[in-house]
Design a binder for these strands. Structure first.
Lengths: 150, 150
DNA sequence: ACAAATTCTACCATATTGATAGACTATTAT
DNA sequence: ATAATAGTCTATCAATATGGTAGAATTTGT
């Protein structure tokens, strides 16, 4: 049930781009350096995200990447699906790459796997990058406030 | 986030053994045939499940495998962890193979991944084979009742 | 024209996955 | 006793996925 390095890097890059939303295009080199992601690998990842319409790019001098829409309209689920494909643990409960199992009607396991898929997508398809970054900022503030109080 | 074939086969074999609980040892060959799992592959899987104490085995003539304890004391999570290892999407939120990420305190992604892990384990660590098989039997009954009524 | 940036195509090493082979050991019916 | 049965162990293997690299081509601002 592991997130691939690709998706992990993608999420980090997206967080970086969320933090820099509306500051214009950000270059791969910068993201790669700040988030410590191998640059050439990151290239592939950002390219993929552009192709599915999550990022916009600008070539040439002063080019770079930026979010294609507001970070409260981009969910973690969208990004993970773009890189890793289906989120569902088995294909017979997948939205993205559904394939019926041989004995779907009587399959004992299927309904539990459906529960698992729903549990995962309930988190990943609802959480936006805007919310995630706010949440983190909040808890950081609280921590700092606490430290100060102590 | 995909379940491996190994875990998938393991779950099916466990369902079969649950259905045959208290009927004595069941042979690999039988499970393999009924559940259409490559026999040699299934051997490895059952061996693993025995080594972690989920199954008991008996060698020799009339030997075979059986559940080591009542199916309401065995969860899907236990079986999947035995075969695939940690369930958590990233190590920094894993019970089984926890490794801190470099920037755990400020990591934006971690808390969401924690939510995902909890969502998954909430299903898999609570669902027992007894319950799963009952659930399936129930819904099968309902379906049959419905068919009859119509 | 030139430099800076993305894009595209291809490649590669390693690990994991799914599966198989065969020798070995333990049990038991006869 | 012994043959047949059934799990155990070690090793191997092909295919695929993963993580990463290389370099040429293309686009764009100055």
């Amino acid at each position: 049930m592991k997130l691939s390095k690709k998706s992990d890097y993608a999420l980090r890059a997206m967080v970086y781009l969320t933090a820099n939303y509306q500051k214009g295009a950000v270059q791969i080199k910068e993201i790669s350096a700040k988030e410590k992601i191998p640059q050439k690998f990151l290239e592939n990842i950002l390219l993929t995200l552009r192709k599915v319409g999550i990022l916009n790019s600008k070539m040439g001098l002063r080019g770079g990447y930026e979010l294609a829409r507001s970070p409260d309209l981009i969910t973690l689920g969208q990004v993970i699906r773009a890189l890793d494909g289906a989120i569902a643990p088995v294909d017979c409960v997948s939205q993205m790459s559904y394939k019926p199992c041989s004995e779907e009607v009587t399959c004992v396991i299927r309904s539990v796997m459906m529960d698992v898929r729903n549990a995962i997508t309930d988190v990943l398809d609802k959480m936006t990058f805007a919310e995630m970054c706010n949440r983190a900022a909040d808890s950081l503030e609280k921590r700092e406030a606490l430290t100060y109080t102590i």
